[in-house]
Amino acid sequence: MKQTSYKCDKCCDTGWILIKQENRQPLAVACECRKIEKLKSEWKYSGINVEQSKLTFASFVVWNKASQRMKDTAGAYCTDFDEIRDKRRNSILLCGQVGSGKTHSSIAIALNFLKQHIKVVYMPYRDVITKIKQNMIDEEYYTRTISKYQLCEVLLIDDLFKGKINETDVNIMFEIINYRYLNFLPIIVSTEFSIDRLLAFDEGVASRVYEMSKDYVVEIEKDIRNNYRLK
């Protein structure tokens, strides 16, 4: 007789484990695999892939004062979030030197939120902007996509203004960020540009991001010694 193979031998893929109780009906307890699958589903909804799910606070390496400041600020933001989420300054901005851990810290925040059942949507700036511009004549697609980033509980914008920037790029980002600004919806932003450079790109977008993130801003000095990839 062929033996049945299960992904999870503990629950035989049912998602539940029966615990025997003396003189009582068995108690059904959710299997660990059920929790893992639920978390993977939340990652998929958020746009975070399995590789990115390894970018946790635990795996973040502190190698200098700048990286310590980034990890401490990101951790403080997570700790304070319930208290600040409905306030004007409810967001976080990680900016400056390439390779300083901005994306890692941003995703670590997102993963922390997902474990608390706070829904986060990941927006890799360059990929999303390119796709939106390629489909701008499709009004239904445009509205649906913009609304996804306007309305989500928390929005993570990774590598804001990466690549060549034109007026259309700025207008799309203004549409998303201004909606979230007006409705007190939090954003997590990473960018390789300084605050001054962001303001030079577009003062309307940058000033809103800065005001929302004012209490949780980390600007890493442009210095090759702050690039972990070159260690």
Rank of each mutant, 00 (worst) to 15 (best):
I48F: 06
T14F: 10
E51I: 05
E153A: 00
K131L: 12
D215Q: 12
L199C: 06
W63Y: 12
D169V: 10
V61Y: 13
L155A: 00
T79K: 13
Q52Y: 07
I157A: 01
I165S: 10
K119A: 14
T145M: 15
G204Y: 15
R89P: 02
S46V: 01
Y228V: 09
Q116E: 12
G163V: 03
L93N: 10
E51Q: 13
P124H: 01
Y122F: 11
A30T: 00
K54H: 12
F193P: 01
V62E: 15
L39D: 11
N49M: 10
R225E: 13
T168I: 06
K44W: 00
S5T: 05
K231P: 02
S53E: 07
A200G: 04
V154Y: 10
S41R: 11
Y179F: 15
E203V: 00
E32N: 07
T14D: 05
G99Y: 03
R24G: 00
I92E: 04
S53F: 08
F81Q: 01
M173Q: 09
T130A: 14
E167F: 12
N90T: 03
T168C: 06
I19F: 12
G96S: 02
P186E: 12
R144N: 15
S53M: 09
L198E: 05
E51K: 11
V62N: 12
Q21D: 05
K65N: 14
T73M: 09
V154H: 03
G204C: 14
N90V: 03
K44P: 00
Q150A: 06
G99F: 03
Q25P: 08
T73Q: 07
K133F: 05
T168Q: 14
Y181M: 10
V209C: 13
K54L: 15
A76Y: 14
T79C: 03
S53V: 06
M212P: 05
K10C: 09
H117P: 01
S59L: 11
S190T: 10
Y6D: 01
V189K: 07
K87T: 08
D223R: 10
A76V: 08
N23H: 09
Y228G: 09
G96C: 04
T191R: 08
Q150K: 15
I92Q: 04
R88W: 15
Q25A: 11
Q134H: 09
K214E: 14
I177D: 08
Q97I: 03
V217R: 01
D13L: 09
G204R: 15
K7R: 08
N166D: 15
V218W: 09
K40N: 13
R144I: 07
E22T: 07
A206Y: 02
E140A: 14
I92S: 01
L151A: 02
E221K: 15
K222E: 13
T130I: 11
V154P: 00
Y216R: 02
T191Y: 07
Y210I: 09
S5P: 00
K87M: 09
D223Q: 04
K44H: 00
F193L: 14
K71Q: 11
R229Y: 06
V217L: 09
I172V: 14
E51H: 13
V218I: 06
I188T: 00
S147W: 13
Y216K: 02
V61T: 12
V120M: 06
Y77M: 03
L111F: 08
